Amino acid sequence: MTDFYTLLPAEHGDRPGQLLRTQAITIPQLDHRTRAWRIMYVSSDSRGEPIPVTATVLSTTSTAQPSPQSTPIVVYCPSFHGLGGPCAPSQQLLTGDEPLEQIREALDREWTVAVPDGENLGITGLGPHTFLAARAAAHVALDLARAAQSIPELTQSHPSRVPIVLWGYGDGGRATVWAAELAPEYAPELDLRGVAAGAVVTDPGALVRTQHRGPWAALALAGLVGLSRAYHHLPLRHVLTEDGRRVARHAEQLSVATLLAQYRQPLQHWCERPDPWNDAIWRFVLTRESRSSAATPAAPIHLYHGAHDPIVPVESGGELFIEYQRRGIEVSWREYDANHLRTAIDSTPEVADTLASFLRRPPTRVGPLPGP
């Protein structure tokens, strides 16, 4: 496993979506008809610089009898898995630790499923994961839609214009919303038909302020670590005490379950001030990450949320829904009588039905091909 995730000196690329490496794999929990590949491809970070990233692509479509119509690709962005270590979705799929409800639902509909690992989560030595850095997460998702179409074993099923839908939950929902807004400029050639995003974190500053103490306090710490990596050109860790810097270095290697178990202290316990989010540099970063450029998505968006979500308050998704409505963007809303984790599962069939309705729409306008 380690060899695949080690970036070779001669391995590089600067074209978003460029496929660098593929490897056929077997996912033990999925049926024998499912073919799978882990891939390494090129995307770009929060500053637009090229980066290598990894992902998993799964398909039940036979190359011997390709579909007469192009097989849709659903880019599924999972919720936050952790900052490092063996918690990349591509690794958890092999060990049997990755939740499969959404992936199975999409495969049962004979869609190709592409699951990104995210920036710095997977490739050896690049961590920690840039948790809450939405622009990079959006780039990674859109470039995965590009890269999946270059896998040789899928080229017979995927002609040049492939219907694409995006599906994400939690931090993955945040990634898909940003991807929808950035797609017209960043990836205009993609035939993006629609987006489904659950439990969307629209304002990471609000998340840090509401979760800086209590059972989910480690998420605030993880956000500080992730964003300080995404904006490594800024001195963001200056708000930490010496003990806090030690904890941050340790947290870089941990899964979300271990983070929540080990670091229950309020965020201020590790900081020089009680409100690190009010530091001038942090205010700049959190404001930049609160929304994208308020660009208009070129595809319809379905938002959903649990009414009793203790991690991402339902008001976060509701406010985004109202904003989109006011701007005349095609958007729908579904609220479930459940908490964060239960909503992710209960919503699966209905969300997949919504994505299927998006896929029945005519292709989006063809944009220019991306430059090198």
Rank of each mutant, 00 (worst) to 15 (best):
M1L: 07
L7H: 07
L8D: 14
I27R: 08
P28Q: 10
P28T: 08
D31F: 11
S43I: 05
R47M: 11
V53M: 05
S59P: 03
S70R: 15
S79V: 11
F80M: 03
H81N: 14
P89E: 05
Q92F: 08
G96E: 12
A106Y: 12
T112N: 12
A134M: 02
A141G: 02
A145R: 01
R146G: 00
A147K: 03
Q149Y: 05
L154S: 04
R161P: 01
V162F: 00
P163H: 14
V165D: 05
D171I: 06
A175K: 00
P184A: 04
P188L: 03
P188C: 02
D191F: 01
L192C: 08
G194R: 13
L207H: 03
A217Y: 09
L219F: 02
S228R: 09
R229E: 07
H232M: 06
P235W: 10
T241N: 10
R245T: 12
A248R: 09
L267N: 04
C271N: 04
R273L: 12
F284P: 02
R288A: 11
S290V: 02
R291M: 06
S293L: 15
P297C: 03
A299F: 01
H302E: 05
A307R: 14
I311Q: 04
V314T: 12
I322P: 07
Q325S: 15
R326T: 11
D337E: 13
T348W: 07
V351L: 04
V351W: 00
T354A: 12
P372C: 11
